[in-house]
């Protein structure tokens, strides 16, 4: 079973993605702010991490840059940014910090989100 972590502060969206993916048979873990998100990424093993950028306590960019230096070399889970920020600079910043993908929430229908998740999970196996 694939394990997915969602770091998302908005309760409705967090629960939405959780239900959407659980319905597909994935095992979901969630974090509603940056600090917990970072700790979970460092302590647990996942197959995919969906990371928001605008987060309380620690934002997504900060998490990415901390992981870049501190994350265990063998950690394989790709981190896909799932956000509503969409400026070129931000996108570039995320990829520079090691993000595997960048998705804009408001531009995607649920089926499109599912397809993206599936394709990223396939890439890792």
């Amino acid at each position: 079973m694939k394990r997915i972590l969602i770091v998302e502060d908005d309760q409705f969206l967090r629960e939405f993605y959780q239900e959407l993916l659980e319905a597909e048979g994935y095992i979901l873990d969630t974090a509603s702010e940056g600090e917990t998100g970072l700790r979970k990424i460092q302590q647990n093993e996942y197959d995919l991490i969906l990371l928001d950028i605008m987060l309380p306590k620690l934002n997504g960019i900060q998490i990415l840059s901390q992981l870049k230096t501190q994350r265990a070399k063998n950690a394989k889970a790709p981190i896909v940014v799932l956000t509503n920020l969409g400026q070129d600079v931000t996108i570039k910043q995320c990829f520079d910090l090691g993000a595997a993908g960048y998705l804009i929430k408001s531009a995607l229908n649920p089926d499109e989100v599912l397809n993206e998740v599936k394709s990223y999970l396939q890439k890792t196996t």
């Binding site: 409705f12 969206l13 939405f16 959407l20 920020l85 408001s106 229908n109 649920p110 089926d111």
Partner: peptide
């Protein structure tokens, strides 16, 4: 940005 969060939720749940 603040507007987009609830709009994404509306869009997602309506689609579902």
């Amino acid at each position: 940005h603040e507007l987009k969060t609830p709009m994404t939720a509306i869009r997602s749940y309506a689609w579902m």
